[in-house]
């Protein structure tokens, strides 16, 4: 659980301390991985097995798994859309540095 929070925070750190737009998308992806890890950890029940009801077995909570399948696909869509937008920005500005999109000033 704490490792999942650590992965989220690594993504957050990369999100705040980067100027490269592609690195920002990578940080967002890392944050999504941390969220997946956190949800699957929350759904764990001690002694549980994979949620396949092949008999009277005790399973883990299946709800976070299905929510996370949804989240994976939405993460893919978000990343793809962001990268396409970055490509169009790169065509226009000739750079992937986000500080150049705001007139090239240093102040954020």
């Amino acid at each position: 659980m704490n490792i999942a929070i650590l992965v989220i925070l690594v993504g957050l750190y990369g999100l705040t301390n980067n100027d490269n737009a592609i690195k920002l998308m990578m940080s967002l992806s890392v944050m999504g991985t941390g969220v997946i890890l956190l949800f699957v950890t929350v759904g764990y029940i001690p002694g549980g097995e994979a949620p396949l009801m092949t008999g009277p077995v005790s399973t883990v909570d299946p709800l976070p798994h299905s929510v996370m399948i949804t989240f994976i696909v939405i993460n893919l869509a978000t990343t793809a859309l962001g990268l396409a937008m970055i490509l169009q920005l790169f065509k226009g500005y000739g750079s992937v540095n986000i500080s150049e999109y705001f007139g090239g000033e240093e102040e954020l």
């Binding site: 490509l87 065509k91 226009g92």
Partner: peptide
Amino acid sequence: VYFFKLEVIPSST
């Protein structure tokens, strides 16, 4: 297919 077909040439250069 979309990402393969792209040719990325920045217009400002």
